[in-house]
Design a protein around this nucleic acid. Structure first.
Length: 478
RNA sequence: GACCCUAUCGUCUAGAGGCCUAGGACAACACCCUUUCACGGUGUGAACCGGGGUUCGAAUCCCCGUGGGGUCGCCA
């Protein structure tokens, strides 16, 4: 493994290059907010013919896990958000960070601070008691003519960035507009811990520079990091990318999403029967708009996507609308694909029958009536495993008259070709023979065959169920 | 507490000073279709947070409130 991964920024003489990145920290799965951030960063790069880079920010050794890394990779793959470069792992770039820290120390844009953690805690406590903003007081910051405290023995210093003390840091946020923050609000933050490992704001800056990131699209919980990063970038003499901060996604109930509440892995959406194109469409429309357009596939999204039409306020997740989109894409989905999904889901429940009926044919029967793949699998279930209707349904629908009609129908079906038109004709013959109306026969038939009083057109159901299963189930009537 | 962000139907949103009698979508409701249940179709109700300005004219610009959110770590 390379100890040093320095990516040369792509220098194009004429065409403006767009390079975006998605930089999650692997302390948990990829959730819906992260997925939208990734989607927007990906779409922006695609829209401009640029590159999308995946970077894993795993410097928090205590909380990062390989499982989380895999979860993120899986989520990205399920969504189809392919990266052009990476994944890069920050833990593999340690040498590079240390090198830059040495450069900054040498240049005087950073300095060592020997203040102990306990001292810092005391300082903060005192500041808070005085209702001040807690911040480092600069006691180890070298100034001309200033005498620094004697270096205490026995412990290693942290490295702090020498942040400008006056003036303002400002940027034109691509989604929120101009934002200005006074340097007086910022303190000399730590860029390397006592053990020498670099911290977040520093790694981000080094990486964004080394990787030639031109547009930083991320959650707006990073707005307050931006001025620090800009100052750092400037101290390094590096170009400042454009920033666009996405507001957060709230849960269905309007409250903040958290691990305990509503924040689920994108893979959970797969588990719950959502199609990736539905999730992508929903997410694309959450906080971004293109006039009144509601339904679009990624090719279209990429063509339309821009930063100008991103909402700057928080958006509440609406499962109902996602369900509607999912139902929409289900109707459009290929039967063979849905058939495979039915089998995958059924086999989880131990239903592994691979003989007829054909899952794709069942999908065709039900795909425009359900909202998700799990419902589709539920609909398919009685085709594979003979259901037992509830006593209530049996009592209600399988009356003597109905049983007699089904017996009449059975004899006709035994001789019929199992094609919808032929079956429909047999059904009508039974109506004539018994003097019953269609629902009076069709509903008992549904209960007998599928254990439910509702189904798609019964002749189509019969055709998919097939002669053997149909007759067998009719023979087993109570 | 300080700093920053934010505010149009229940929800996602359109809206770049007159095109707004504020549009679309989901959800809700009604009706139609129907072989049941769905799907689908048609229609109805539903919003510019409050107060001041600026302007001939404000949902749109400015200020002040209020509500919501974020950040203030040797986490990311």
């Amino acid at each position: 493994m390379l100890a040093l991964l320095i990516i040369e920024p792509v220098m194009s003489s004429s065409l403006p290059v767009v390079r975006t990145r998605f930089a999650p920290s692997p302390t948990g799965y990829l959730h819906i907010g992260g997925a939208r951030t990734a989607l927007f960063a990906w779409a922006y790069a695609r829209r401009h013919g640029g590159q999308f880079i995946l970077r894993i920010e795993d410097t928090d050794v205590a909380r990062s896990t390989p499982e989380a890394v895999q979860g993120i990779l899986d989520g990205m793959q399920w969504l189809g958000l392919a990266h052009d470069e990476g994944p890069f792992y920050q833990m593999q770039r340690m040498e590079r960070y240390k090198e830059v820290i040495q450069q900054m120390l040498a240049a005087g844009t950073a300095y060592q601070c020997y203040m102990a953690k306990e001292e810092l805690d005391d300082l903060r406590a005192a500041q808070e008691a005085r209702k001040e903003k807690p911040r480092y007081d600069g006691r180890w910051r070298p100034e001309p003519g200033k005498t620094l405290p004697p270096i205490p023995p026995g412990h290693n210093p942290v490295v702090r960035f020498r942040n400008p003390t006056t003036g303002v840091v400002a940027w034109d946020d691509q989604v929120k507009g101009r934002i200005e923050i006074a340097n007086a609000e910022l303190d000399d933050f730590i860029i390397a811990r006592a053990d020498g490992t670099p911290t977040y704001n520093f790694c981000v800056v080094v990486d964004d520079r080394d990787m030639g990131i031109t547009h930083v699209i991320r959650g707006d919980d990073h707005v307050n990091n931006t001025p620090r990063q800009i100052n750092l970038l400037q101290a390094l003499g590096a170009p400042v990318p454009r920033y666009g901060h996405l507001s957060m996604i709230l849960g269905d109930d309007g409250t903040k999403l958290s691990k305990r509440h509503g924040a689920v892995s994108v893979m959970q959406y797969d588990e719950n029967g959502y199609l990736p194109e539905a999730v992508l469409n929903y997410l694309g429309r959450l906080g971004w708009s293109h006039g009144n357009e509601e339904v679009f596939l990624m090719a279209q999204f990429v063509e339309w996507f821009d930063l100008d039409h991103i909402t700057s306020s928080a958006a509440q997740f609406n499962t109902e609308k996602l369900n509607w989109l999912n139902a929409h894409y289900l109707k459009l989905a290929d039967d063979a694909r849905l058939g495979a999904e039915i089998r995958r889901r059924l086999s989880r429940e131990g239903v592994t029958a691979t003989d007829c009926p054909d899952a794709a044919a069942i999908a065709a029967l039900y795909k425009d009536r359900v909202q998700n793949l799990n419902e589709l699998a539920d609909c398919a279930h009685p085709f594979y495993i003979a259901p037992h209707a509830s006593a209530e349904l049996v009592a209600q629908h399988l009356t003597d008259a109905a049983q007699a009609a089904l017996a009449d129908l059975r004899s006709r079906l035994a001789r019929a070709d199992f094609l919808p038109e032929v079956l429909g004709k047999a059904l009508k013959e039974t109506l004539v023979a018994t003097g019953l109306k269609m629902p009076q026969v069709a509903i008992p038939l549904r209960v007998a065959l599928l254990g439910q009083p509702q189904s798609p057109a019964i002749d189509r159901v019969l055709a998919v169920l097939g002669r053997d299963r149909t007759l067998e189930r009719l023979d087993r009537l109570p």
